[in-house]
Amino acid sequence: MVQEDQVLDARGLNCPLPILRTKKALGELTSGQVLKIVATDPGAVKDFEAFAKQTKNPLLEHAEAAGEFIFFIQKA
């Protein structure tokens, strides 16, 4: 399991807020640090893959449990 440096609670938020909050939270991290995001928006899975690809911040891992989507993104 990846170890996070910071957690972002994006539960209950809908598109595009989880992505926008993630962008902001990543801005506060230093290169190599990992942000864990917890979201409930089912559209987030595709969005986070697309976000990671386009911003070149690697999506290290993602999982789904009990209606929650968990992402680990590393700041490039």
Binding site: C15, P16, Q54
Partner: peptide
């Protein structure tokens, strides 16, 4: 506003 803010977040 959704597209503009998201695009800005994508760089």
């Amino acid at each position: 506003f959704i597209l503009a803010s998201t695009a800005a977040a994508l760089g």
